[in-house]
Each structure stands twice: as structure tokens, then as C-alpha cells.
Amino acid sequence: MNLSDLLKPEAVIPCMKAQGKKQVLQELAAIAAGLTGLPEKNILDTIQQREKLGSTGVGHGVAIPHGKLPGIEHMTGVFARLVRPVEFESLDDQPVDLVFLLLAPESAGADHLKALARVARLLRDPEFAKDLRATNEAAGLALLLAPVNPQSSDALA
């Protein structure tokens, strides 16, 4: 599975400004709404519903809000790098500055979980996170997250 399938270049926000967790989620939902054509409110509800089960802040400044969204056609990702880290109720109480939103269709099942695991594994690599933090333009971030060449990580996945 390659992230380039679900992360469009225009879904990468290099310098997002937000005051807190709620605003981050709102901004992400707005972007996802633009990408999918679905109402922003539905998206926000879905991810906040998931957030109620426990924060998706996975530690080390990374958060991966996610959820299953009725009506969405295929898995959609949005990545944002925050200008100023925000409190995210993370496990390690560290403020978060790298956020990856992953929305999946109701029917996605195993693919959703696989994609989620992949994003989690990718972002938990401290070297990789360092690279992301050091890059402040969308193209560079998109290249890091989802290398253009379809052969690279997708070879036999």
C-alpha cells in the first residue's frame, strides 16, 4: 500500500496555524470537505466521535485522527505540519505538531486498518519525523510521505 494512493499533493498543509486540538480538527475537516465534497460537519463529527474513545495523539508530537465516514468514496488522507505545537491530550502529554487525518469508507475494513498501521509506523520513526519537521514546503513533505514513483514502496505490497 502506498500513501500516494490516499494522500493527494493538495492535501498536504506545510504550515497550519491553529490554537488547539479542536481547531486543528476543524481545519483538517474543512480541507477534507474540500477534497471529498462531503459536508465539513459530518467529517468533524466522525473524527470527534473517534477522539472520544481516546486521543489519537500517539506520542512524540504526532497525532493520527481517523474514522470511517459514510458516503466517502475512497480512503482520503490529509497531512498538516503545525507552525506551533498544540495540546492534544496525547499519551505522553507532549504537544503535537504533525497531524495525519485518515478517512475511510465504511466498507474499507482491513484496508483502513492497514493504512492506519502504515501511517502510524511511518510517523513513529523519529528520523522520519525529524525530516518532516525540517521541511516547510508542501511539495517536499508530499515527496517524503508519498514518494512519487509508484514502484518504490508499492513494489510488492
Binding site: 466521535q49 481516546g54 489519537t56 500517539v58 470511517k68 499519551l91 475494513g109 492506519l116
Partner: peptide, 27 residues
């Protein structure tokens, strides 16, 4: 360590929440 993803899973879940939420979010 507490953040050992392999051992404890990638996400933290609040166990006081209804279990039905898991079915909704993850099938």
C-alpha cells in the same frame, strides 16, 4: 516503555467508553 507500540498497540483507548464505539470505528 509505555510507548512501545508493538507491545501496547499504536493508539491509546479510554476504557470507560462504551465498547460499541470500537465496532463503529474499526469494525
Amino acid at each position: 516503555a509505555a510507548d512501545d507500540d508493538d507491545f501496547f498497540g499504536a493508539f491509546v483507548i479510554d476504557p470507560t467508553k462504551p465498547v460499541a464505539g470500537l465496532a463503529q470505528a474499526y469494525g
